[in-house]
Nucleic acid binder design. Structure first.
Lengths: 251, 251
DNA sequence: CATCGTGACTAATCCATGTTAGACACAACC
DNA sequence: GGTTGTGTCTAACATGGATTAGTCACGATG
């Protein structure tokens, strides 16, 4: 991906949360971005280290996770092209979780101090970045509910629904059909289940006729039923359905 | 609590994340706060409604929760005196969860547009509020791990540890001894367990000699062991141990 | 070409936690 | 001063999902 294309994706992303002035856009474009490609499983952030760079994902997938004292991994979120990966840590002193590439990824990185200065000097841009982290938090909350109070088939159906909508919003899927970026083991780490049980549940969802799978590709054949099974309500995603500028206007 | 005391608490809270100028402080004090007392179980925010007011908790406890399609409740966070309750929703169009008083609460409310204007016109204050929400998000992430990958005794021990430190940071507890604001049923809703099992586990923690209980009062008699049992590492709380201005300085 | 590693998939068994049902203590209220 | 409600606590039984232990297909690697 060309560098200028990368920056423009960042600008567009932030603009969906509110109008930016030309000066705001120029300030974003002036950031000292550094472009890199990461192999699958490469770490972007390690728990315990101070955040120095903040990355935007241009292509590919990445995920946040922690490992318990027992050595069990819990994935806390999965990120796709266009999303910021490190706003969660950039304003804190130390990273409290890991961020790792799920697939091969292209990223645009910028040093944390430059990002802080941007937020300080361009409050509208700062607000847009804040909103990005608020939506991340909304998804974290939904995942607490998912692993805390839903049974296995509901959890996985919910995850499949969330992925469908987020991928479609990112222009990476259509007609509720997509390429699942994760292995069944990683799905297990998202849902607090074992890989074995994930396999059983995926098979069951296929048997019920609500999804069709071939390798990693997933087609949701009965969206309404999958939504019901998954107790899925898209509200928490705060998607800007009407396109840019559809935010709640300041009164 | 007197009104001016309430405002000063908000100022102090925001100052722990970075130095504020006199103009910043004045702007916070000039906010049109409205003071109210809520009875236990009163709603501050309802899922599906647009956020209109943003509240700071002056005394008492409140909690965030969602209810699944099956009618099961999951508590996503518990808040104590000094914390903001609605920054999570104020910059989004619609609340995606409920916020409810756990005990009798005194709150200071301000209309959302005034708060947005404050963040816009005083970027340093905006940044401090952003950091508050980032820490909320860090706690959400830890709770995903807690309900997703820890067994029942670990979950509850972890919750008890978190409460001890947060209450001490808020000046509401000392010597790892505090008044638990929640019933066992509410603890169950925090941990994704049943009230019956919470009771078993609390009894077991008592039998192990790491806590002592009498009604709602909890004394952690062996902090180190409870921490081990609870797989607890305080990093995710991002406590400002050195007092104000102990944030990572801009470079 | 053989070997190795990984991911998908399956079956048998087990156990941590849920479910159901109730006792008991205590405070609030008519 | 009985009644009602709420929170704590317990026991007996049920079960969802974990655990264990594989097979199989496939691509990468030497």
């Amino acid at each position: 991906m060309a560098a200028c294309e990368g920056v423009e994706r960042v600008v567009r992303r932030l603009e969906t949360r509110g109008p930016l002035s030309e000066a705001d856009r120029a300030a974003i474009r002036a950031l000292p971005f550094h472009y890199r490609t990461l192999e699958p499983a490469a770490y972007l952030v390690r728990e315990g280290e101070p955040p120095e760079m903040c990355a935007v994902l241009l292509t590919g997938f990445a995920y946040r996770h922690k490992v318990t004292g027992e050595g069990e991994r819990q994935i806390m979120s999965v990120h796709m092209a266009g999303e910021f990966l490190d706003l969660q840590n950039s304003f804190l002193k130390v990273a409290d979780h890991n961020v790792q590439a799920l697939t091969r990824c292209e990223i645009a990185e910028v040093a944390v101090p430059a990002l802080r200065a941007l937020a300080q000097d361009h409050p509208v841009v700062g607000r847009a970045m804040w909103i990005e982290t608020l939506i991340d938090a909304a998804i974290f909350r939904e995942w607490i509910v998912n692993v805390g109070r839903r049974d296995s088939i509901t959890r996985i159906a919910h995850l499949l629904c969330e992925f469908a909508l987020r991928l479609e919003a990112a222009g990476l899927a259509r007609n509720h059909r997509y390429e699942m970026p994760m292995t069944q083991e990683q799905i297990a780490d998202c849902t607090g289940l074992t890989p074995v049980h994930v396999n059983r549940v995926l098979k069951e969802l296929g048997r019920l006729g609500v999804i069709e799978r071939e390798k990693r590709s997933v087609a949701i054949t009965e969206w309404g039923r999958l939504q019901d099974i998954g107790d899925f309500n898209l509200r928490y995603l705060h998607l800007e359905v009407g396109g840019p500028n559809n935010f709640q206007s300041a009164r």
